[in-house]
Design a protein around this nucleic acid. Structure first.
Length: 802
RNA sequence: GCCGGCGUGUCGGAAUGGCAGACGAGGCAGACUCAAAAUCUGUUGUGUUCACGCACGUGCGGGUUCAAGUCCCGCCGCCGGCACCA
């Protein structure tokens, strides 16, 4: 009898063996085929690892282990995305330096991850808060600055009127501060911005050649939101200046009945003296400043606005005078901050016009009465009430009006994006300092490359200031410096970078993590890039994934990386929910700690369960009973050693099943269908139990197939059975397609689509023979006139009768 | 609100348009045991029938097809993202 399966002993044993043997180190042997598998590095929070983390990590660990057995030089690294708001807030609250908090959290996370037996190459561990790392984050920022892609502008931040600090969106709950409950206002602050919009077209167009799951591509395209329309100038009556608007529907220009400018539009201040209801405008502006863009445009059930008394615009195509309103459904950050309103054919304009009793003029026929229902269909309508555009389709009218506007010099074709430039400043301590100084003479001056890294000052106090500025602003010794350009007095930038900065290029650093002369050596980049497979959460699709593609494309344009896209393949995993089907959270009391599962059942059971829990891309609820089932499966595998025979071949009863299982597991691992791969292995083991026998050949194959999922146990069993070497350095099993099919198949025989019998026939039988065998199986159930006979080989026979 | 996704037994979930419910959990029964647990074996969608069967079944309402969980149209419900959480 075998000894009992004890993961508490064998798991640490094998983890130590792997470390000693450097089993999973990526080598610098560039003659071997490479495979770069990447998972999103975690934010080391105080809560420690969550059962959600092991899902993607185990999945890519499986892929990595399989690739090594297939002969690849695999890079599968791990690191820490350690700058961030929660650490800083925790540090302030508990009076511990964020650096210490981070060190503790990282140590905890690392211990937890190591207990799960991942095949990470720990020699390449990185940490975004390490100055040897963020030196290069700052270096990339300087390159962006020098290329004109970083600039400063006034942007609103959330500001708590009581705490006097800038707040993240997450810290604002229903318009009030999460900590103190005081109202939050939108305060204008000078901010660093990155021109991601300059890469908008490339970020959309280059998606075509990438192996990203479709919903990721769709999300990125929608997020960038490219639209083609026109900018048009409307003369302001009795004024020099024109009001420029952006519209995606220039074809509806004859239907304009009013215009709207955003509350932040510069013309309001400019024409202050002529605006008769200035007080009302100011009051409205104040009210709008309390809302986020999201509240203004999307959640607003009721449109609000004020008509500007004193300014009128003139429609350039028909000379009509039209009123100008201020409303917060128009954003300064999209288009030109002003719109022409065509209530008949835009639902927001329609709601606004209905609320304020503004006229609605139909210019595209095809809908119902536009006084009662807006008509926005662009595919079928025909232009009316539109002078020279009458009778044209929407598409024709668009083209004609753009040509007209261009010719007359009153407008032009214009592409626009929903994508906005990236707000790159945070008024926070715990982030990468922005390597810029502000010199009275020279303006914003970048630090010299040799002066990097610009270290985050190591101080005791990093409390927020009450002006909304970064805590760094209070550190005058650090702030006051000299200009790298003229040597005169200058002040350092006190904002820090957002957490997204460090994660925008981390995959490059893994390639050559100890290099002090470059973020990575050229030949190493050439060999390892691009990342072959990157798996991460759907929640990172539009920010992290887009930001890192943007930085990579920039580095490519500057000649620093060898490929224009960082990731060849991108997949996503679903969330692990609590036992009650809700998101796991402390407040809901449904959090499962992976340590407890490892302690009670072992890491191999946790890994198996996380992969078996359901379809990898869908969310799944945790179930303690399900964990037990996976442990039972591993116990059954363990006990197979008592049924082992000396035969090194597959037995005749099992040969088809073996080849089928190798095929199924191999393919399912590639397609992230881990649940069905494990189901196939369970079924295989059930068969061994029925025979009460497993040959050494079958056993060896099984241990290899199962190794990526349950690496510790399979290494132990491999050693006990006396197979040569280690499983991790063995070869992935092959299957013979011809041996995956039985000679005969049992198929259903239907009458009018309803199964009435089954029949066992040779799988390569002719249609005639199949049909007659089917009819025979049906016997006297078959009656009436046969209308049609269908035979789908290996699938079905269907006889249609009347 | 906009964008994306998901609705299948008691539960987690399987099904290139081809016998719905693989695999696991739970239940029931048997073996082992003084007994229980563990383990092993069998069984398990609903209705109806002594039974062979038959009928009904994939959120709801229509449609396409020899054949629909799967494709199309229209609803309902739930989940995720929405730019300073990461």
């Amino acid at each position: 009898m075998s000894k009992t399966y004890n993961p508490k002993v064998i798991e640490p044993k094998w983890q130590q063996v792997w470390t000693e043997e450097k089993a999973f180190a990526a080598t610098d042997d560039y003659s071997k085929p490479k495979y770069y598998a990447l998972v999103e590095f975690p934010y080391p929070s105080g809560q420690g690892l969550h059962v959600g983390h092991p899902r993607p990590y185990t999945a890519m660990d499986i892929v990595s282990r399989k690739r090594r057995m297939q002969g690849y030089n695999v890079l599968f690294p791990m690191g820490w995305d350690a700058f961030g708001l929660p650490t800083e807030n925790y540090a302030i609250k508990n009076q511990i330096h964020p650096k210490i908090v981070t060190e503790n959290n990282v140590a905890h996370f690392k211990k937890q991850l190591q207990s799960l037996g991942y095949s990470f190459d720990w020699d390449r561990e990185i940490n975004t808060t390490d100055s040897h790392y963020y030196k290069w984050t700052q270096w990339i920022f300087l390159k962006l600055f020098n290329a004109g892609l970083a600039y400063k502008t006034k942007m609103p931040i959330n500001f708590c009127t009581s705490c006097k600090v800038g707040l993240a969106n997450e810290e604002v709950v229903n318009g009030v501060c999460e900590r103190c409950g005081a109202p939050v206002i939108r305060k204008m602050q000078s901010q660093w911005m990155l021109k991601i919009t300059e890469y908008a077209d490339k970020l959309i167009d280059d998606l075509d050649d990438l192996d990203f799951i479709e919903k990721v591509k769709v999300s990125q395209k929608n997020w960038i939101g490219r639209s083609t329309g026109a900018e048009v100038d409307f003369q302001i009556k009795d004024k020099e200046e024109k009001l420029r608007i952006y519209t995606t529907r220039p074809d509806t220009l004859f239907g304009v009945t009013y215009m709207v400018v955003s509350p932040e539009h510069p013309y309001l201040d400019q024409y202050k003296d002529e605006i008769k209801n200035w007080d009302a405008i100011v009051a409205y502006r104040e009210q709008a400043s309390r809302k986020s863009d999201f509240e203004r445009t999307e959640l607003a059930k009721d449109k609000t606005g004020v008509q500007i008394d004193g300014l009128t615009a003139i429609n350039p195509v028909n000379g009509k005078e039209i009123p100008i309103w201020v409303s917060d459904y128009v954003l300064m950050s999209y288009g030109t901050g002003a719109i022409m309103a065509v209530p008949a054919h835009d639902s927001r304009d329609w709601e606004f016009a209905k609320k304020f009793g503004l006229p609605i003029i139909e210019v595209v026929a095809g809908g119902k009465n536009v006084q009662e229902e807006v008509y926005t269909d662009v595919a079928t309508g025909t232009l009316v009430n539109s002078g020279f555009l009458d009778g044209k389709s929407v598409a024709e009218a668009k083209e004609a009006i753009i040509a007209y506007l261009t010719e007359k010099g009153i407008g032009e074709k214009k592409k626009n994006y929903k994508l906005r430039d990236w707000v790159f400043s945070r008024q926070r301590y715990w982030g990468e300092p922005i390597p810029i100084v502000n010199c009275e003479k020279c303006g914003y001056v970048p630090l010299k490359e040799e002066d990097l890294p610009l270290l985050l000052p190591d101080v005791d106090s990093y409390m927020p200031t009450d002006t909304g500025e970064s805590p760094l602003a209070a550190m005058t010794d650090w702030v006051n410096t000299t200009c790298p350009c003229c040597g005169g007095p200058a002040k350092r930038e006190t904002d820090t970078m957002p957490q997204w900065a460090g994660s925008s290029w981390y995959f490059l650093r893994y390639i050559d993590p100890h290099n002090n002369d470059a973020f990575a050596a050229e030949d190493a980049l050439k060999y390892w890039m691009p990342v072959d497979w990157y798996n991460g959460g759907m929640e990172h699709t539009t920010l992290h994934l887009l930001y890192s593609r943007f930085w990579h494309k920039f580095l490519y344009d500057q000649g620093y990386v060898p490929c224009k896209e960082p990731y060849q393949k991108r997949t996503s995993h679903g969330m692990i929910l609590g036992e009650n089907g809700e998101k796991m959270s402390k407040s809901r009391g449904n959090v499962v700690n992976p340590d407890d599962i490892v302690d009670e059942f072992g890491a191999d059971t946790l890994r198996t369960y996380e992969m078996f829990i359901g379809a990898f891309d869908l969310s799944a609820s945790w179930s303690q009973e399900g964990v037990k089932g996976c442990r039972r499966f591993l116990d059954r595998v363990w006990k197979l050693q008592d049924m082992l025979t000396e035969d090194t071949e597959y037995s005749k009863e099992m040969v088809t099943k073996m080849h089928q299982t190798i095929k199924k597991v191999s393919n399912d691992f590639e397609n992230l269908k881990f649940n069905t791969a494990i189901a196939a292995m369970m079924s295989l083991i059930n068969d061994f139990y029925k025979l009460n026998r497993v040959t050494r050949g079958e056993y060896q194959t099984l241990l290899t197939l199962l190794n990526p999922v349950a690496p510790h146990m399979t290494e132990e069993l491999w050693e006990i059975a006396g197979f040569a070497g280690r499983v991790y350095e063995s070869t992935w099993p092959e299957y013979d397609e011809a041996k995956t099919v039985e000679d005969t198949v049992e198929i259903a025989v239907q009458i009018n689509g309803k199964t009435r019998a089954t029949v066992k026939i040779a799988q390569d039988i002719s249609k005639e023979d199949a049909l007659s065998a089917g009819k025979e199986a049906l016997g006297d159930k078959l009656s009436g006139t046969i209308v049609k006979e269908i035979y789908v080989p290996k699938r079905i026979i269907n006889i249609v009768v009347k």
